[in-house]
Computed example of a mutant assay.
Amino acid sequence: MVKARRPAWKRYIYIIIPLGLASIWLWRFLNNAESTDLQALLQNLPKEITQSIDSASQQKQDASMVEMFEKLSADLLQKQDEQLQKFEKERRALEKRIQDLKQPSPHASLRENLALIFEYRPSYRFPAFLWQTWPYSDTDGRMDPVLQSYERHWGDKNPGFVHEIINDDAASALVHYMYSAIPQVVEAYELLPSANLKADFFKYLILLARGGVYADIDTDALQPVPNWIPENVSPREIGLIIGIENDASNPDWRSNYVRRLQFCNWVIQAKPGHPVVREVVARITEITLERRSEGELRMNLRNDLNIMGWTGSGIWTDVVFTYMNDYVQSGILSKITWKEFHKLEVPKLVGDVLVFPQSSFNAPEKDSMDKDSDSNKALHFATHSGLKSWKAGPKIGDEE
């Protein structure tokens, strides 16, 4: 009897199943071996490599911390600046309110009331104001093209300054506003019989109340205002900056000047409330009111000496010397005379008044400069053409 044969596929099952089990076992064995080898490899790495990895990670963390700290510092500084600006704004507003509340006493003198309302603070900075006067608007066609170029130069060389050209109407309005609490000053200003006298008086009035730089319209800026103060002098030590107008070297100086050595008043820089400016305002006010009471307001305004002695560089020079010789105000023990500034070649600080040589605010024209003047060119701050347009005005006898 022949036995039946088993199907072929059954025979293959007995072969495939053991092979599959063997493959699975081998795969698991190899994986475990690789993992074990990798762990062993990592454990056997040199210490320098592991330390380098740790150091890089630490540096990354440190850099992140520094970046966070810098950002925090910047935020704090910004908030601090904003807070300081807020405090400064509030302080100025408070000072303005206090200033508005100040009322002169009816029993106080003119000088006491001026000192009360326009307080002098030596430690404060020079205000960034630039004042000029002209009878009409600076865009008026009657202004000479040369004067227009001068006016532009002042503004171009001092971009951070508030530059104002004050015409006659605006000047009168400002005087009435700033000195409303001191009617004697307003009265004296209105009594002055000439627009040129008023313009002269106005320069002191605006400097006393607001401070800054005053420059006649016929002056031309050669250097920015911040260049005026020498590097070895602190602005906190200075309250007034002036220059010499004339340093007479011949005996007939009296025919052209009131004093042998005069300080110019066509360019002045002052801090608000400076005692020299306050005193010249008081003197002009008193002289004008006295002239009114004596019937001497009307005079020949074509005479330079009359102008100099009333509102010009003559009375200005007298007040400056009086201040320098007042120990209580200037702190100077020795007597100061014109000889202290005779042939002055470098700036000289007397008390808190900085005096510049004659060429500083009356620099020679470029065409007339010689070798000697070039050596002092660093002190040439402005030129003065001295147009004296007031001489072309009508005679006082013709005015109504």
Rank of each mutant, 00 (worst) to 15 (best):
S64C: 02
H107C: 00
K86M: 15
Q148V: 12
K335A: 08
K391W: 05
A378D: 14
T219C: 14
I396T: 11
D304V: 07
D140H: 14
A209M: 09
S137W: 07
G160L: 11
W338V: 10
L305S: 04
Y323I: 13
T219N: 13
S73D: 11
Y257N: 12
W27V: 13
N158D: 02
I182C: 07
T36E: 13
F381M: 14
P104F: 04
A363D: 07
W316L: 09
K60R: 09
N256M: 13
N300Q: 14
Q103S: 10
S375M: 10
D247P: 00
R291G: 03
T288I: 08
E34H: 04
M308T: 08
N232R: 11
S23K: 06
Q103W: 10
I287L: 11
V213P: 01
E90C: 00
F161G: 03
D220N: 13
V267Q: 11
Q358A: 05
P235G: 05
I307H: 04
V328R: 15
D372K: 13
D62L: 08
I241V: 15
A188V: 11
D374A: 02
F202G: 03
A74Y: 08
L94C: 04
S23Q: 06
D372P: 00
E187G: 09
L101Q: 12
N303P: 00
L45A: 02
I396N: 03
K339L: 08
I165F: 00
M1D: 08
P183N: 06
H380Y: 10
A363W: 11
I117Y: 02
V186Q: 10
V355G: 08
R28G: 09
G212A: 01
E286T: 15
R111D: 04
V213L: 15
S109M: 01
P127N: 03
T139Y: 12
G141C: 05
N256R: 14
Q269G: 07
S375D: 04
K391D: 01
V146S: 06
Q262F: 01
P224H: 08
A209Q: 06
F202M: 04
A22R: 06
A171M: 15
Y150D: 11
R125A: 03
I332Y: 10
I315R: 07
A215N: 11
Y12Q: 09
F263Y: 08
E345H: 05
F29V: 10
A188E: 10
W266F: 15
H163C: 02
L197V: 02
K371I: 14
C264Q: 14
R11M: 11
Y150I: 05
E164D: 06
R283E: 12
D370K: 01
I336V: 14
L354M: 13
L147K: 06
L45S: 02
T139P: 02
L344N: 00
V2D: 10
K377N: 01
Q61L: 08
L30F: 09
A181K: 15
P193A: 09
